[in-house]
């Protein structure tokens, strides 16, 4: 369904061909195509507009490199801008406290529990003594799910199946971790909607009680236009430290990444690329930019010119 952006641009670009400079008139159609491509990739409407407006200003008057298509050159400008927007360097997580508390939050089904298991394995491999904490007291078999994952990655899971108070469980887990000398605790929480006042109060209270050094917002890369509203609402309540983008082993273009970054200005720290426990990766802004634009070939072309 989604054609390559550079293909789409070809038509629009014909008007640019043969002109020495990018000008107001000849750039309009192209910018429109780029905006459309961004929206096709689920970049939020307003964000797409802002970005393309900015790019238009930047591109205006630039000399077109003779060897390449002006369209390709614009795509390169767009790509660079997206990379810049998503933060140019890899960002780690803060593990300075003892024990360091990592709180996991997000919408239903976004991949929190799976990511918690992955992160536990990842930190364990880097030599840390990790405890997983099951604070989802709502979803059927949520505790069992985390326990199975804990077994798979050989990390202890703290749970209180009879306790219906997430704040208490989190506090008790922290106390337990201190007692037995765990260095990191990862707190998995129930999925919740940003508009669910009671549930948002719950996670705010959990955060307040255990003072995490790192709060991560987990978001499905297939999320559409609403990603910005959700991210903003979670950020307003939790002031999270970073974003985890999941299910990138799919073929969604993942424009939500760009929108969220643009709106809440928090770095994307990890990406999740499968159901298995080792399917965890760092976030590379340049790869994400190419993915959102649905291209790869154009860039190398421009680079060579």
């Amino acid at each position: 369904m989604f054609e390559n952006l550079s293909n789409k641009l070809n038509t629009a670009m014909r008007t640019l061909k043969g002109k020495g400079r990018i000008t107001d008139v000849n750039v309009a159609a192209t910018v429109k195509e780029i905006r459309r491509a961004l929206m096709d990739a689920d970049v939020n409407y307003k964000v797409a507009k802002e970005i393309t407006d900015r790019i238009k200003d930047e591109a205006m008057g630039q000399k077109i490199v003779i060897a390449v298509d002006p369209g390709q050159m614009l795509v390169k400008i767009v790509h660079d801008e997206l990379v810049k927007l998503m933060g140019s360097q890899v960002q780690g997580i803060n593990l300075k406290s003892d024990p360091s508390v990592i709180l996991i939050a997000g919408l239903q089904g976004s991949g929190k529990t799976t990511f918690s298991g992955k992160l536990a394995q990842y930190l364990k491999k880097s030599g840390r003594n990790v405890l997983l904490v099951a604070c989802d007291i709502y979803r059927p078999a949520a505790i069992d799910q985390l326990k199975v994952l804990g077994e798979q990655v050989e990390v202890e899971v703290y749970s209180e199946p009879e306790n219906k108070n997430a704040v208490q469980i989190a506090q008790n887990a922290l106390e337990y971790a201190r007692k037995i000398g765990k260095k990191v605790i990862i707190v998995d929480t129930a999925g919740r909607l940003a508009v669910d006042e009671a549930m948002m109060n719950e996670i705010a209270a959990v955060k307040e009680a255990i003072k995490p050094s790192e709060t991560l917002f987990v978001v499905d890369s297939m999320t559409g236009q609403d990603a910005v509203n959700t991210a903003k609402a979670f950020n307003d309540r939790l002031n999270f430290d970073g974003v985890v983008l999941t299910k990138l082993d799919g073929d969604a273009r993942g424009g939500a990444a760009l929108s969220i970054r643009h709106v809440v200005e928090k770095p994307i720290k990890f990406i999740s690329t499968g159901e298995k426990m080792d399917a965890l990766d760092q976030f590379y802004p340049d790869r994400m930019a190419s993915r959102i634009l649905g291209m790869g070939d154009v860039l190398s072309l421009v680079e060579r010119a």
Binding site: M1, F2, D40, A41, D42, L107, G109, D220, M222, T223, G224, Q225, D226, A227, T230, G250, D251, A252, R253, G255, A256
Partner: peptide
């Protein structure tokens, strides 16, 4: 289909 899914829902349906 998840109601908060964006354009990927089309490919899923397909």
């Amino acid at each position: 289909l998840d109601g908060s899914t964006g354009q990927n829902a089309f490919i899923q349906a397909q």
